[in-house]
Write a protein that binds this DNA or RNA. Structure first.
Lengths: 169, 169
DNA sequence: ACACATTACATAACAGGTTATATATCGCGT
DNA sequence: ACGCGATATATAACCTGTTATGTAATGTGT
């Protein structure tokens, strides 16, 4: 069998590797959400969480809080608005700013996720991270292996009731 | 000041966070290469390294070795071929397979990087990872902070001669 | 008060990954 | 030898981030 060259290269290819694991985790998280009937790209959740925590925020503030660049925030906010989860309004005091707020639908979504899904996801990821030892590279390798062996949704399901679809109110 | 919500959320947003750090590292690495006159997207280097190590490989083998999906490999290989660093030839025994090999230009590039750049990059990343302690999340936070404070190229330059442009042979 | 830099957001093009699916060749069973 | 599943690659569409740059509104110095 061929080697995993990215892993072999150690620190040299750490960037590629972190990115790869991150993408895998995002996909896993999205899968869990979907199993609950919530169908939204994984990267949208930090926006909803930030608005839930902080109330109305401008585009730039959201980018800051979430740690991405402003154009990325602009796009995601646009998609969330199109999906009806947030509202975008021009600030009254400064016509350049856009105030972003959760709609009622968005608030309901966050409430549901906060109550029923996110704690389980957090627990599943924490489960995967417990017992890790050694250097950062060692721990990362353990996570890669652990995630391949037991995907997040498996860890999630083993700790939770089988999900009940939120759409069937 | 507003919080970094992705970090606050702990394990819940680990995916987004890993991805973010990975992208930063890739960008840093690319920057160092560029300072040496080598202008190639960061994700292309694992391909060159794999071909250098293993000799000719098929598209699927490259995807395996590097740990990405086959369509991703197909695209990157196409770009490398266009840049003249690899050659794509149909296998003689199996018309479905494409054998990918380094061109002379590709071999020179790898030789130069292996000799003059990659060791320094590896050392810079290792430098950033030394002395890390605590949980995976703690170490990740330390890396985020360390990278923001001292980008890779700074660590690299402090340990190496100022780069000499390889093009001016 | 007006010129001009600064700020906030939008837009465009790209990087680097993904899934889903099409296409062509191979190889195997009957 | 022929049909058909399996395999190798390609293509298309998408996600999520990035730079670089444009545009409109704001504020500031003279």
């Amino acid at each position: 069998m061929l080697h995993d060259i990215v892993r072999d290269f150690g620190h040299l290819t750490l960037g590629t590797r972190l990115r790869r694991v991150g993408e895998m985790l995002q996909a896993n998280t999205q899968q869990i959400m979907q199993a609950h009937g919530v169908d939204l790209p994984a990267a949208h959740y930090p926006f909803l969480a930030a608005l839930d925590r902080n109330g109305a925020l401008s585009v730039g503030e959201l980018a800051d809080v979430i740690g991405i660049t402003q154009p990325g925030a602009t796009r995601t906010i646009g998609q969330l608005a199109e999906a009806g989860f947030v509202e975008i309004a021009a600030s009254e005091t400064d016509q350049r700013r856009k105030q972003v707020t959760l709609t009622e639908s968005g608030e309901k979504l966050v409430a549901f996720a906060k109550e029923n899904i996110w704690p389980g996801v957090e627990a599943a990821v924490r489960d995967m991270c417990t017992g890790l030892e050694g250097s950062f590279l060692d721990q990362l390798a353990a996570i890669e292996d652990g995630l391949k062996k037991h995907p997040l949704i498996e860890r999630y399901n083993s700790k939770n009731e089988p999900p009940s679809d939120r759409k069937q109110t």
